[in-house]
Simulated scan of single mutants.
Amino acid sequence: MSRPERTKPNSTGVLSALGNKYSAEILCAAGTPKSAQALSEDIEIPIATCYRRIEELVDAGLLTCEGRQLSEEGRRTYIYRRTVDELEVDFSDDQPRFSRKRRTEAKNQLQDQLEN
């Protein structure tokens, strides 16, 4: 799988990504950097499904690829982390509006330290 490109999220893409089965579980599990394989195992979903959901979440701007790491098998794998901690959807206008509570780099670093 090639490195995912991040596109500018739109409301339809965000709603579509969140509406798919397992997307919320992937976001919850991706509070710390994890590979697709680790997410697949944590949530107990097929790896192909996990890759599809990851791609949708990256396209929606809710998940980001943080780089690569060496797997236990010695392969270089992409690792992902969610970009938001909270997402609010407002349907009161013609188009949905989102307010996001983005994860800060400081929070990511703190959480990484707590995991080690």
Rank of each mutant, 00 (worst) to 15 (best):
63 L>Q: 12
28 C>Q: 00
93 D>A: 09
109 Q>F: 12
26 I>M: 12
115 E>F: 08
102 R>G: 12
31 G>T: 08
78 Y>G: 02
55 E>L: 12
111 Q>R: 08
61 G>I: 04
9 P>D: 10
76 R>Y: 04
31 G>P: 06
22 Y>L: 07
71 S>K: 04
75 R>N: 07
62 L>I: 14
22 Y>H: 08
108 N>C: 14
74 G>S: 03
115 E>M: 11
19 G>F: 09
67 G>N: 00
3 R>I: 09
22 Y>R: 03
93 D>V: 02
52 R>C: 06
36 A>S: 14
56 E>Y: 10
92 S>L: 05
74 G>D: 02
15 L>A: 14
57 L>S: 13
39 L>F: 10
17 A>K: 11
8 K>R: 15
21 K>E: 13
110 L>M: 06
68 R>E: 05
46 P>I: 07
28 C>M: 04
38 A>Q: 05
56 E>A: 15
25 E>S: 03
9 P>E: 11
39 L>C: 11
43 I>P: 00
110 L>E: 04
62 L>E: 13
45 I>D: 09
24 A>I: 06
65 C>T: 00
78 Y>Q: 06
59 D>I: 04
2 S>L: 06
71 S>D: 07
101 K>E: 04
29 A>Y: 13
50 C>F: 13
72 E>T: 04
72 E>P: 01
34 K>Y: 12
88 E>R: 14
12 T>S: 14
4 P>N: 04
113 Q>C: 10
80 Y>W: 02
76 R>H: 00
93 D>F: 04
29 A>I: 14
87 L>G: 00
8 K>W: 15
76 R>P: 00
46 P>F: 08
33 P>Q: 11
8 K>Y: 15
47 I>N: 11
115 E>C: 10
32 T>A: 14
45 I>N: 09
32 T>S: 13
6 R>I: 00
89 V>F: 08
24 A>P: 00
106 A>K: 07
90 D>L: 11
65 C>V: 03
115 E>D: 11
47 I>S: 12
61 G>M: 01
114 L>C: 02
74 G>K: 04
43 I>G: 02
63 L>H: 12
52 R>E: 07
1 M>V: 14
84 V>N: 03
66 E>G: 02
89 V>K: 02
112 D>T: 14
110 L>Y: 06
6 R>H: 05
25 E>P: 02
85 D>E: 05
53 R>Y: 08
13 G>E: 06
83 T>C: 15
115 E>V: 12
77 T>G: 01
47 I>H: 11
103 R>D: 05
96 P>N: 10
64 T>S: 10
30 A>L: 15
103 R>E: 05
108 N>E: 13
